[in-house]
Write a protein that binds this DNA or RNA. Sequence first.
DNA 1: GAAGTATATCGACAGTCATCGATCTTATCG
DNA 2: CGATAAGATCGATGACTGTCGATATACTTC
Lengths: 119, 119
Amino acid sequence: MTVDILPNMTTDDRHPATEDLRLTKVLAALADPARLATVRTIAALGDSPCVELRQAAGLTITQPTFSHHQRVLREAGIIRERVQGAQRILSIRREDLDACFPGLLDSVLSTPERLLSDR
Amino acid sequence: MTVDILPNMTTDDRHPATEDLRLTKVLAALADPARLATVRTIAALGDSPCVELRQAAGLTITQPTFSHHQRVLREAGIIRERVQGAQRILSIRREDLDACFPGLLDSVLSTPERLLSDR
DNA sequence: GAAGTATATCGACAGTCATCGATCTTATCG
DNA sequence: CGATAAGATCGATGACTGTCGATATACTTC
């Protein structure tokens, strides 16, 4: 008798399963300027390592702070991390987000930059 | 020489002008369960006074707390208040939101209830 | 294996936020 | 005018959050 083999790649104890995504958590994660900029930068550049993203997104925060934001985005189910050697490649969980909240990601990504700032 | 006459109804010092809406502020306002429920209830019932909304949304918060959330939603540009006798009628600024962030409101309103809770 | 690079974790701290009870304001209705 | 009803405002409080420096972990390269 064998144990379950999960077909869901994203359930690795660090990433929430698709069915566990929650709107309020996703919105809260996207509501921070640094995190929003990070997500939009991944969308613009494609999957990238943290080090590159932090710079490309024009963030003036330190590495531990970026690491914190990365964690919030991951735990909300917005980004996925995959290990590649010594670095983590971040990507957007686009299919999962589109499946749960159709139109939300597109809306957030297509908002012009001048409507972002504040706070 | 005359002074400017603003054609923008929403600029009454309590409601931000359409061009002053900001994505992070809107997302932050929607990220709270009580506020999200309020907005969705307005969408479901149509424009309604606070007293009715607080109950219809199934909120267990006190009146001052509701008043606080109402203020956050108003200052983010999500709802409009109009005075009618002794009460305030709340409505969603749908056209303004759709103009600034196409698809965002629809996405948030059409998310099934089971994907809301948490936190 | 030593040095360097990428990221995570920890503990502290300051600022923000949701919440409440008490009170004030304003309008309606006898 | 007095009573009631709808909201707003104030001040306090506890919880959460963004930020950092210091340190730990893990991989790579020499």
